[in-house]
């Protein structure tokens, strides 16, 4: 290891010391309750609650970045899981995007665990993400991209020709779903009416 790399690693550890101290109030639940207490108030309070929740999500995601730099994949997974526990005001449209983004990252991190177990966990997170989505967005499209990545990994892992072929078909179908969502998003962005289903089914 070079001295620069050692310095970087030491620096990360120091950052962790700071982060640990700063995240302690969140971890003990007291502040989470306080944030929840903001959720039913005025518009200004709700705006503040959304900003607090977004900041918390950003902090957990950044924590995951730092852990990944240190090679701590389980720690990063735990950090991203925390994003899913953040209480947002019920009416905040940002909540869905933040949660979908967390599902996406979580699925990708599980996939990095490798093997059948990692793939299963990643697919389970993708499925949960699909249930979270109440509208189509780039986030929901990217869930299908992650599903495709999982099937691609499966196709590369398995040796049985039939299982390999099945994985490829599922990957292809996931790409098709991704395209379908993007096409609808594109039409919305271009202010075009929804396409008729005739001849569009895959």
């Amino acid at each position: 290891m070079t001295s620069a790399a050692r310095h970087g690693s030491g620096c990360l550890r120091r950052a962790w010391l700071f982060c640990g101290l700063l995240l302690l109030p969140m971890a003990n639940g007291g502040c989470q309750r306080a944030a929840s207490g903001l959720l039913g108030g005025s518009t200004a309070e709700n705006t503040e609650a959304v900003l607090v929740a977004l900041s918390e999500a950003r902090a957990w995601q950044r924590r995951a970045d730092l852990l990944l730099l240190d090679g701590d994949l389980p720690g990063a997974i735990h950090s991203v899981e925390e994003v899913l526990l953040i209480p947002f005001p019920a009416s905040a449209p940002e909540a869905e995007d933040v949660r979908l983004d967390a599902h996406l990252r979580l699925a990708r991190l599980y996939l990095r665990l490798g093997g059948e177990e990692g793939e299963k966990k990643a697919l389970a997170v993708v499925e949960k993400g699909r249930k979270v989505a109440t509208r189509e967005s780039f986030f929901s499209a990217h869930l299908e991209s992650v599903a495709a990545d999982v099937y691609r990994a499966r196709g590369e892992r398995v040796t049985d020709p039939k299982e390999k072929e099945d994985a490829k078909r599922r990957e292809l179908e996931a790409h098709e779903r991704h395209i379908d969502i993007d096409k609808r998003l594109l039409r919305t962005l271009l202010n075009l009416p929804p396409a008729s289903n005739k001849g569009e089914s895959r």
């Binding site: 970087g8 990360l12 109030p25 903001l38 900041s55 902090a59 950044r62």
Partner: peptide, 24 residues
């Protein structure tokens, strides 16, 4: 706890954005 929470977030944001992670 709200002021402390807000403080923690802002400080954490300031801490991790331009700081050690970039250096690492």
């Amino acid at each position: 706890c709200t002021p402390a929470l807000r403080s923690a977030f802002v400080v954490l944001g300031l801490l991790v954005s331009p700081g050690c992670a970039h250096q690492a």
